[in-house]
Design a protein around this nucleic acid. Structure first.
Lengths: 542, 542
DNA sequence: GATTTTTCACCTAGGTGACAACGT
DNA sequence: ACGTTGTCACCTAGGTGAAAAATC
C-alpha cells in the first residue's frame, strides 16, 4: 500500500516535471518600483513601526508562559499599516462597483450594512484594511474590464489579522486558506485566458518569531531567493465563459523549501514574508507555453490580505488554532477546541481571544472581571474555563468550516448552456478585515459585530500604470514599499510557547457541562448521503 | 460537515448538469447495419450457440452448490465467437504495425515472441480472440493515421474470459477495469481532439444468470434503453502532443441505472450486455459543444474484450473474486484470498481455477488426482486446500495489482517540452485473450503460458467504410451481429450460488501452514518512502 | 424468488499539525 | 535556542463488495 504510493508518485513526478514553468527573472530585491512613494499614516493608530525595522533581542522571561504578569501589550509587531489604497483604487479605469468603495477600503468588496458599520467603526478606531504593497498591473486595455475578487476573503482576513503563516515542506504543502478568485468581465467568447499564480517576496528581510513576545522580529537580510516560478492554474486556458462561471481555485498548488523541486511547486524561503499574486493572461492559441509574463498581455491582481510568512513549523499558536479550526483536513486536532454550532459571529470568539490575549497577560482574563485570581484554582472554575474556550473556538471553527465550503465547478463537456454557477452561499457573519485597536474599540466592535456581515468576497483593487513596473520580469520588487504598505507584521497576541497550549490546561470538562458538548460535531461520520455525486467527471489525469 | 458535503454536491450537480451531453438517437435496436454479414465459424471450437438464443429454464439442484456431481461442463454460454476481424483489420488503410497482425488476430497488438507462441497455441486449439461486433468507423481521412490501443488489455482479457460484469448503482459506479487508451499518430500540432466514450447495447436481449449452471441465459427481450449518452473525457480537448504522450483514462466515468441521472453518468439497464466505444473527434474551435457525432469528423474504436454485462450485484463469483483481487479499492475484501508474491504467471492460477471449475464438478478437483474423495475429510487436507487457494488467488491478485499501476499524466501548464510520458512497466506475464477450449487444450496452454507475454496493450483494429453505418446517430446497432461476433457470453465456470463462496469453506488454515502465510503480503505496510510527491499539480476542479 | 437498494466496514489516497529527532 | 525534517495519528473524501433490507 505504501509501496504503491511510492510508485505512483514517482511516475507522476516525471510527467510533472515536463510541464513546470520556471521564470528566470531579475532579482526582485534589486528592483525599485516607483510606487513606493505613497505614504498613508493618517489611518494608523494601533501599530507602531518599532520592533520590525530593527532586530529586537529581548531576554525571555525565565518563568516562560506561566509568567502571568509579563507585559505583552506592547505592539511592536507591524511594519506599517499604511497603504497605497487610494492610488490603486482610483487608478482603476473601470471600477465596476464604485459605490462600494469606501474612502478607506477601496480594495474591499461590498458588505452588508451591518458589516459596513463594524468595518467603519473598526477603521475609525485606527485599524485600516489591507492595501496592496505589491502593485497591480495591466498592459492590456482589453483586460481593464476584467475584475478579480478574492473568495473567502473573511477567512483570509482572520489569518491576516493574526499574521498568516504558511507551512512549507520538502515534499510541498498546500496553502491554507486556498487562493480562490472570481474573474468577472470577460466578454470575448473566442478569447481564452490563463490564470497564473506566483508568490513574490514582500521585502528583503528574514524574520524570526519571539515566542515570549509573540511577535515577529526582523532577523536580518533575506536569504537569496529561489528563481521565481509561475504556477499556471492547471485548468488553463479558460474560456471567457468558464471564467465568468467558475471560481478559479489554486487549492492544489504546493509550497516547498526544496530548491531542487522538480514538481512545479513554488519554492520559498522559510521565515520570509511573501505576497501571492494572480495573473490573468490572454491565451495565445499558438501553443507556445507561457514562460515569461513580459511576452504576454496580462493583468496582475494583488490581494494584500493574502500576505504570509513562510515557515517550516507554525510560530504563532493562534495561527495553529485557526488552521486547525478552519481547515477540514486538520479536524483531527480539534478535540481541545470542540465545535459549537452557536449562531453568533465566529469572529467574536477570535477577537475575544485576541483581546484577552492582549490584555495584561492573563490566561483567562475574563475571570479577572468576575473573580480575580481564580486562574490557579481550577477546582471550581475548570469547567467554566473549558466551556468558554469551547465556545470561543467553537465559534471560530464553525465559521471557518462554513467558509471552507467548496464550490466545485467541473467541466463536464464543453457545453456552455449551463446557467451561472453557484456563488458563495450567503452568510450573515461579520468579516472584519482588521482587529480592533484598543480595548475600548474592541468593546464597541463586538457590540456592532453581533449582527451580520459581508459575503466573504473582496473586489480586486484597481490598476497601476504599466510604467510603475519598469523592466518588470515576473518577480516584482517590494521591500522598498514595506514602509508604506499593509503587509504588516502581526501584533503580539499571546506569550505562550507553542509547545504549551492553553487548551491543554483544562484537562477535562466537568461531566455536567461536557454532556452537552460531548457529542462532538467534528466526529460525526456523515452517513453516505447518496446525494448525487459530483465527481462523475473530474479530471482523470493520474 | 454533512451539511457542507451536501451543499457542495448540490452545487456541483448544477454545473454538471449543464455540461451533460445527451444524444437523442434513433433506437439502436432498430438499426440494421450492413456489417452483420461476416460470419466466421471456422475458428470456433469450444462455444456452442445453444442455450443463448433460447431461454433455458432448468430447475436448480436442490443440494445447491454442494451438489458435487452436477454436470456443469455444458458450455451453452456463448452467443458466438466469430467476428469480422479480417474485414476490419484489412480495411484499415494505415495499419502501422501490420507485421503483428496475425490472420486470426487482426485486432490484437504486438506481443512478445513468447506470448505469440502461447497465443498461437491457444488459437490453434480453437479459442479465437476478440473481434469487434460493433463496427469501428471513420469519416475523416485525417484520422485514419491515428491508432488506438487499449491499455491493461490483459486485465480486460481476464475479465472477458470470465464474462465481465460491471456494477451499476443509482449513484453511479466506476468501471473496473478502467478504460484506458493510447492514441498514436496525431501529428498536426494545431489540431485538437476530443476523446469520447459511449456504451451501446450488444444485442436486444435481457439476460439472467443461472447460478446452478454458472452461466448466462437469455431471459427475454431487452428493456427499452435509455437515451444513449456521450461521455466526453474531461480533459478534452487534447492537443496532438498530449494525445501522443498521455494515456487517456476514463477512470472517472460512472455507470448508473438511474434513468433520471443528472450527473452525466452513463445510464444502462441491468442484466443487459454492453460494448464501450471510444470516439476520437476533431475539435472544432468554434466552441460549439459536441452533441451528435453525426456533425463531427471522428473515428470510432471498439475493443471487444471490454464487453460487459451490467448488473446491480455480481452474478459470477469469480468475477467478484477477480475484482477484489485486482481493484485496489477492494483490498478490504482480500482476506480470504491472501496475496502471494509468487513470480509465476498470475494467469496460471486463474486458468487453473477455471480448469478446475470446469472439470467434473469438484470443489477441489486436484485432490482427485492425489487422493480421491478427501474433499469431505477436511481434517488433514483443510490446510492444504486453503494454501492452494491462497496461491491461486494470490497470484491473480499480485498480477492485477501490478497492472493497476496508474500512469498519471498531469497537465502542468501547457509546456510541450516534456519528454514522452512513461509507458506501461514491462511485464512478463502471459495475456491470453481467450480461454482454452478443452481440457487438453488447457493443459497445453498452461504449459506454454508458463513463460512470458505481451505488454498488456491491444492495438485497435482497422476501419469500416463510412457507409457501413447508415444514418448512424450515436448508438449503433448490433444485436443483428450477435451471431457473428466475439461478444460472447461467458462459459459456465462454477455452479455455486454467489452467497456461498468456496473460500469460506476452509474455515481456518491449520496453525502450522498458516504460520508461514499469516504474514499476508497484502497487509504489508512499507515505510513511507518520501519520494517526491507528484500531486502538486493535479486538476484542481473540485 | 429474483432483483435492487441501502448501509456498512474496510480500503485507497492523501492532507493535517504534533512531536521527536536532528542540525546549526 | 532556534530552525528543519521525518514520522505519526487522525482526519477528509470517496471507492469497494458484503450483507441486510427493501422492492417487485
Amino acid at each position: 500500500m505504501m509501496l504503491l504510493s511510492s510508485t505512483m508518485k514517482t511516475s507522476t513526478t516525471a510527467s510533472l516535471e515536463s510541464a513546470r514553468i520556471v521564470l528566470q527573472a531579475s532579482d526582485p530585491l534589486k528592483v525599485q518600483p516607483k510606487a513606493s512613494n505613497f505614504t498613508i499614516d493618517a489611518i494608523m493608530g494601533c501599530c507602531k513601526k518599532e520592533g520590525v525595522e530593527k532586530i529586537v533581542e529581548r531576554s525571555k522571561s525565565p518563568t516562560g508562559f506561566e509568567d502571568d504578569d509579563e507585559d505583552v501589550d506592547v505592539e511592536e509587531c507591524s511594519d506599517g499599516e499604511a497603504g497605497d489604497r487610494q492610488q490603486s483604487s482610483s487608478s482603476s479605469p473601470l471600477r465596476s462597483k464604485p459605490a462600494s468603495v469606501e474612502p478607506d477600503s477601496g480594495s474591499e468588496g461590498p458588505g452588508s450594512p451591518a458589516s459596513a458599520v463594524s468595518r467603519r467603526r473598526k477603521r475609525a478606531s485606527g485599524s485600516p484594511s489591507s492595501t496592496p504593497a505589491i502593485p497591480e498591473f495591466c498592459n492590456s486595455p482589453e483586460l481593464f474590464g476584467i475584475e478579480c475578487r478574492l473568495e473567502t476573503k473573511d477567512l483570509w482576513d482572520k489569518f491576516h489579522d493574526l499574521g498568516t503563516e504558511m507551512i512549507i515542506t520538502k515534499t510541498g504543502r498546500r496553502m491554507f486558506p486556498t487562493l480562490r478568485v472570481s474573474l468577472s468581465g470577460a466578454t470575448r467568447p473566442e478569447q481564452r485566458y490563463a490564470v497564473l499564480l506566483d508568490i513574490v517576496p514582500v521585502d528583503g528581510k528574514r524574520y524570526r518569531y519571539a515566542y515570549h513576545r509573540s511577535s515577529w522580529l526582523v532577523a536580518g537580510k533575506a536569504d537569496p531567493p529561489a528563481p521565481p516560478r509561475l504556477y499556471m492554474h492547471p485548468d488553463s486556458p479558460f474560456t471567457a465563459d468558464q471564467l465568468r462561471k467558475q471560481v478559479v481555485s489554486f487549492e492544489k498548488v504546493k509550497l516547498t523549501n526544496n530548491e531542487m523541486d522538480k514538481n512545479g511547486q513554488i519554492v520559498l524561503n522559510s521565515m520570509h514574508r511573501y505576497q501571492p499574486r494572480i495573473h490573468l493572461v490572454k491565451w495565445r492559441e499558438n501553443g507556445a507555453p507561457i514562460t515569461n509574463l513580459e511576452n504576454e498581455e496580462y493583468r496582475t491582481y494583488v490581494f494584500p490580505e493574502t500576505v504570509f510568512t513562510a515557515v517550516t513549523a507554525y510560530q504563532n499558536q493562534l495561527i495553529t488554532k485557526l488552521k486547525i479550526d478552519s481547515n477540514p483536513f486538520a479536524k483531527g486536532f480539534r478535540d481541545s477546541s470542540r465545535l459549537t454550532d452557536f449562531d453568533r459571529d465566529p469572529m467574536e470568539g477570535l477577537f475575544l481571544e485576541q483581546h484577552f490575549l492582549r490584555s495584561p497577560m492573563r490566561l483567562y482574563p475574563e475571570l479577572d472581571v468576575d473573580n480575580n485570581n481564580q486562574l490557579y484554582h481550577p477546582t471550581l472554575t475548570q469547567a467554566t474555563m473549558d466551556k468558554r474556550l469551547q465556545m470561543m473556538w467553537g465559534a471560530v471553527a464553525a465559521a471557518a468550516a462554513a467558509q471552507q465550503q467548496q464550490q466545485p465547478h467541473h467541466l463536464v463537456g464543453r457545453s456552455s448552456s449551463s446557467p451561472a454557477s453557484p456563488a458563495s452561499p450567503p452568510r450573515t457573519t461579520t468579516a472584519p478585515s482588521g482587529p480592533p485597536a484598543s480595548h475600548a474599540d474592541l468593546q464597541a466592535f463586538l457590540a456592532a459585530a453581533a449582527s451580520s456581515a459581508p459575503n466573504g468576497h473582496r473586489q480586486a483593487t484597481g490598476l497601476l500604470p504599466p510604467h510603475i513596473w519598469p523592466q518588470w520580469s515576473s518577480a516584482p520588487p517590494l521591500h522598498s514599499l514595506a514602509g508604506a504598505c499593509d503587509l504588516r507584521l502581526p501584533r503580539p497576541v499571546f506569550p505562550l510557547h507553542p509547545r504549551f497550549s492553553p487548551y491543554l490546561i483544562p484537562s477535562k470538562p466537568s461531566s455536567a457541562l461536557s454532556a452537552s458538548s460531548s457529542t462532538p460535531p467534528s466526529v460525526q461520520i456523515p452517513s453516505a448521503g447518496h446525494s448525487p455525486t459530483p465527481d462523475s467527471t473530474p479530471s482523470p489525469r493520474e
